[in-house]
């Protein structure tokens, strides 16, 4: 190393941080490594809106197939105030939210204990596995007719359909959460005198919680996508019902309003659950 280079190095170290911001670097990694993506997403959305506007404004696609953003907005205001197909927009939304919410509560309160039991107990796993593995891959639309025959066309068949669709992801994730626990933690708890129940409550359940919350997030997503199917069953309210009725009259703009509403709510739910996760499991994630 020359004298000049050595001097340079000394000067570098003497430079106070912040006088001019140094060029910071990150290690090369695969994947995202939690770099922000929000700006990219917003830009992509903006581009999509502009393309939509241009395509419709210059008449490249007939308004019957693709209404302009302006038309959809006007229709949104109209449906909000005057309603569509016998109910206002907020009544449709309320009916759908109630179904999703009820199904989510029933599915979580059954799937979490069953999933935990399946991760811990040979009998629970042996008994429940074939049932879940059998029905889980079936499309909800395939067993929808059975629901109607067994439970009628009221709320119970819709909520059962949604519950069944939401059950499997939560149950499987609770199971995976238990399997992923380090055995040392369980052993440590047992050698501190914990009973099986105490260990379950203080070590296993909190340890499996991150996986369970991921399962709930997936389940809510599955719930929204099953909702339209559920509301095909002679519903008189609901976002799915509204979309189906609008489709019958080729009211494309109302269909778009419905899709937009579902997208906004699904996004909000997912965001809410991510916040809940950050609050409940703050020890997880970047250290």
């Amino acid at each position: 190393m020359t004298l000049a280079a050595a001097k340079d190095k000394d000067q570098d170290q003497a430079t106070p941080a912040g006088s001019s911001r140094p060029n910071t670097v990150r290690p090369r990694t695969y994947g995202l490594a939690d770099r922000p993506t929000l700006a990219i997403s917003l830009a992509a959305l903006a581009v999509l809106l502009v393309v939509w506007e241009l395509v419709t404004r210059f008449g490249l696609v007939q308004s019957l197939f693709l209404p302009t953003p302006g038309e959809v907005w006007t229709q949104f205001v109209a449906v909000s105030t005057d309603g569509y197909a016998g109910a206002t927009l907020s009544e449709h939304i309320g009916a759908s939210l109630l179904r999703i919410f009820t199904a989510a509560v029933i599915a979580s309160s059954t799937a979490i204990p069953i999933g935990l039991a399946m991760g811990l107990n040979r009998w629970a796993k042996g008994l429940a596995d074939p049932i879940i593995e059998f029905y889980w891959p079936l499309p909800p639309l395939a067993y929808l007719p059975l629901m109607i025959i067994w439970l009628g066309i009221g709320e119970s068949s819709k909520i059962t359909l949604l519950t069944l669709a939401m059950f499997a992801p939560i149950c499987l994730s609770a199971q995976a959460g238990v399997r992923g626990l380090p055995v040392e933690r369980i052993n440590a708890a047992l050698s501190l005198g914990g009973t099986r129940w105490q260990v379950l409550r203080t070590v296993i359940l909190p340890g499996a919680l991150p996986e369970i919350l991921t399962g709930v997030r997936i389940a809510i997503g599955v719930g929204w996508s099953t909702l339209v199917a559920a509301e095909l069953i002679a519903a008189t309210r609901g976002i799915g019902f509204m979309i189906m009725s609008a489709a019958q009259f080729l009211a494309t703009d109302v269909v778009f309003v419905g899709i937009g509403v579902i997208a906004v709510f699904a996004f909000t739910f997912s965001l809410g659950l991510q916040l809940l996760e950050r609050w409940l499991v703050p020890w997880k994630g970047p250290q």
Partner: peptide, 13 residues
């Protein structure tokens, strides 16, 4: 019988 593990088995939460 108390146990101290090689890799800490503390509860992170």
């Amino acid at each position: 019988r108390g146990v101290v593990f090689q890799k800490d088995a503390l509860l992170p939460w």
